[in-house]
Nucleic acid binder design. Structure first.
Ligand SMILES: [Mn+2]
Ligand SMILES: [Mn+2]
Ligand SMILES: [Zn+2]
Ligand SMILES: [Zn+2]
Lengths: 151, 151
DNA sequence: CAGCAAAAGATACTTGGTCTCATTAAGAGG
DNA sequence: CCTCTTAATGAGACCAAGTATCTTTTGCTG
């Protein structure tokens, strides 16, 4: 972990270039910062780390990266919208409500289930949005530990 | 359908009163309008139909009604947040991307599935958010019909 | 029906994001 | 390498949805 961060940033840029977008210095900066992020982040977070970039540029980059599938949006339990690096393709998130970490949930087995349920309502399924909230392994074991020590 | 609309509005008010909230005339107006809504709506929709109420009052009422479980939030595919009458308790929505109608999906069979998946990631499930997008029966049969006629 | 707390309304502010428009800078082609 | 076109940027106005603050009004309870 760490170190290959530039490689990741470059990968983001390449994805954009493949789609015909120019590799500009603001975009390089954004890619760099995103590559350094270890958690989901907001537009405001980026702005804090890139105070010299125009605000609109940040939003434009985010939108672009979401459109190209590099980033995905994450809906927090309180309704806040964050962004994070996407494992391309359809997936969901296990979001820890305690530490805020997020684990990707690949292989979306609910698709099948939804198809059935939808069909039984005469509904032609085309997509879905799912976020899962709870406590990650680390946080739930920390909880149990402190219960023991305070008891 | 139609007609028992006042009964519904009164029911909303009663729910609030049960929780110790006063029955004020702005709240009666909001309840009335909500009871008349046949689709999910935005705060702005309400405002359009209640131009005399203070904007803050509308938002305060909506928040209250969501908190008491009378309304639920609906996340549209484009990210827009709407509100609609809630069948109390946990449920999801089948949202038609064509006509905008919404069908409630009661009996959330994904809970079970999510529990398993979460557990296998060492994740202690506490909640989830799910919206399902597609085409409702009416819209998908209309589609097929027009295909036939234009062919 | 008096008095108090809750609620309303006006309005300022905040957050997250888009639009416009003048200026700058990629990068393709010569 | 230079030139030209066009995409992209930055500044800033604007917008939508919602919250905060503060004064006035109104429900309700005793
Ligand atoms: Mn993701
Ligand atoms: Mn609902
Ligand atoms: Zn955690
Ligand atoms: Zn439909």
């Amino acid at each position: 972990m760490r170190k290959r961060v530039n490689a990741l940033a470059e990968q983001l840029l390449e994805t954009l270039e493949e789609r015909g977008y120019r590799s500009t210095s603001p975009r390089r900066a954004v890619a760099q910062v995103i590559a350094n992020q270890d958690k989901h982040f907001t537009a405001e977070d980026l702005r804090g780390q890139l105070p010299l970039l125009g605000r609109a540029t940040i939003f434009r980059s985010l939108k672009l990266l979401v459109e190209t599938g590099v980033l995905c949006r994450v809906l927090l339990e309180d309704g806040d919208l964050h962004y994070q690096l996407s494992h391309r393709g359809h997936h969901h998130h296990l979001l820890c409500v305690e530490c805020g970490s997020s684990q990707d949930l690949l292989g979306c087995d609910i698709e099948e289930l939804l198809h059935q349920t939808s069909a039984s309502h005469g509904f032609e399924l085309s997509g879905h949005w799912l976020e899962v909230y709870g406590r990650c392994r680390a946080c739930s074991s920390a909880d149990k530990l402190s219960e023991l020590t305070t008891a």
